[in-house]
């Protein structure tokens, strides 16, 4: 299977099952598109007629093109077969080994963002902070259940984790104290709304946190409309300067500005560009996930505009690359040379298998998006998993368990999509969130267009 598309003046062929990307001229684009449907003689006649006014398209050129296509097919780089399906199930069986925890150190927040999937940070339950003892037990649980894996990850999450900052710092120290004897390396990360960021937080994070995620939605009016205090007052002015200081202190590396876009800003490219103009270099925005009845919920009628925004953003990034003052966008960061292995691509984020969320009182859920939904309560960090039946649903979750994904060119990039989004939109973790798929495919097209442009123009991504 191939996916052929045109964007920004480039003719692009994505070979679905090999991961190869080909940039081609107009005539070759047509030839490859017809290659599996017509005979060579039919293709040749069609191309000669279509390009009769183009002196660069000769019968000899077309024959050479056929030869190039055949060589690529023989090399497994074009029209490659899908040889992974039979081994997908056994890949997944190997994944009952834990390697990452989302540590909910605070169920509570100093903001009351209107779109918060966690119900203003409280996950539709009582407020609470994780105790140091519970946190230590969570790290022990991770070590005990991580098998031979050496690299372990812990994200301090909430609510707002900085409401429980002293415990976070002590847990980092505890994790470090266990590294040598357990033979593990901890990678700690933090997700924050920024209100409590100060010199202590910045200094500690720069020393100990492999990544920090800083929540900013873009332009002031966009951010303040939904990221506000219980009083309704916006938070943009209070966090922006702190975030700038934080990002600069990290030398503009190993952090993400992370925004959410909604029906209120279907022109979200302007919000990303605003963050770039503030000096931030590592950017990301995500579509809001919420009930369709919310006034800010994205709707089907927004889809065309949203796709255009991804192209506008990619073109702006390309302009800035040419000037040497680019920025990165999370969804456009694809590694065409040394990307993830096929196992990772088939099995995705590891929800409910390699990755679990821990609540302040030590309960275990498949991931942060399921916390608070009792149907997905797996057990706790003292007694382990009690609901193997729930885990089984996630264990069986891979791109080959979604029949809708079978012929999708993006399946080895999206890995079947987000199980939580699938559950919330279809009622099944093995469902397919079609709205999300449409956006994902567009992002992949844009990301690969940028790769093609960089290759064709010999551009380096410098920032």
């Amino acid at each position: 299977m191939i996916h052929a598309y045109k964007m920004n003046g480039y003719n692009i062929i994505i070979d679905q099952n090999s991961g190869c990307v080909h940039s081609v001229d107009e005539a070759t684009f047509d030839i490859i598109n017809l290659y599996k449907e017509k005979s060579k003689d039919e293709i040749k006649a069609y191309i000669i007629e279509k390009y009769k006014d183009d002196p660069e398209v000769t019968p000899e050129d077309i024959d050479t093109c056929f030869g190039d296509i055949e060589a690529l097919i023989a090399d497994g780089r074009l029209f490659a077969e899908d040889t992974f399906e039979q081994t997908a199930a056994q890949f997944k069986k190997k994944q009952g080994v834990l390697k990452a925890l989302c540590l909910h150190v605070a169920h509570g927040c100093n903001l009351a963002c209107k779109y918060c999937f966690a119900g203003k940070g409280e996950y539709f339950g009582p407020k609470g902070l994780m105790s140091l003892e519970t946190g230590k037990r969570a790290l022990d649980f991770l070590i005990e259940n991580s098998g031979t894996r050496k690299n372990l990850e812990v994200d301090f999450f909430g609510g707002e984790p900085l409401l429980n900052w002293e415990v976070c710092k002590k847990l980092v120290a505890y994790g470090r104290s266990r590294e040598k004897e357990s033979g593990k390396n901890f990678r700690f990360t933090l997700t924050t709304n920024g209100l409590l960021v100060d010199d202590d937080v910045i200094e500690f994070c720069n020393k100990e946190m492999g990544n920090v995620v800083l929540s900013l939605d873009g332009r002031k009016e966009t951010h303040d409309r939904l990221r506000c205090f219980p009083s309704g007052k916006g938070s943009y002015d209070l966090v922006t300067e702190k975030f700038k200081r934080f990002a600069d202190a990290r030398n503009q590396r190993d952090y993400y500005m992370r925004g959410t876009y909604t029906h209120y800003n279907t022109d979200f490219a302007a919000d990303v560009i605003h963050m770039a103009d503030l000096g931030f270099k590592e950017l990301s925005v995500e579509p809001v996930v919420c009930s369709g009845t919310e006034p800010y919920a994205l709707r089907q009628s927004d889809l065309t505009a949203l796709k255009e925004q991804y192209e506008i953003l990619a073109n702006e990034m390309l302009k800035r690359y040419r000037k040497g003052n680019g920025f990165t966008f999370y969804h456009y960061m694809i590694d065409l040379e040394a990307g993830p292995c096929i196992v990772k691509r088939i099995s995705g984020c590891g929800v409910g298998t390699e990755y679990l969320a821990v609540t302040p009182n030590g309960e275990l859920y498949p991931c942060h998006q399921f916390v608070g939904d009792e149907k997905f309560l797996l057990g706790d960090i003292w007694n382990g998993i009690r609901r193997a039946d729930i885990l089984k649903q996630f264990n069986e979750c891979n791109i080959y368990s979604h029949k809708e994904c079978k012929d999708c060119f993006a399946k080895l990039y999206c890995s079947g999509g987000c199980a939580a989004n699938a559950y919330h939109s279809t009622g099944s973790v093995n469902g397919v969130y079609e709205f999300g798929c449409e956006l994902y495919k567009k992002r992949i097209e844009c990301a690969i267009m940028l790769k093609v442009a960089q290759a064709e123009e010999n551009l380096k991504v410098e920032y």
Partner: peptide
């Protein structure tokens, strides 16, 4: 005419 081809578990990668 111009094909330009751009390119040709251990569990340790990031989640």
């Amino acid at each position: 005419m111009k094909i330009n081809t751009l390119n040709s578990g251990c569990g340790e990668c990031q989640t």
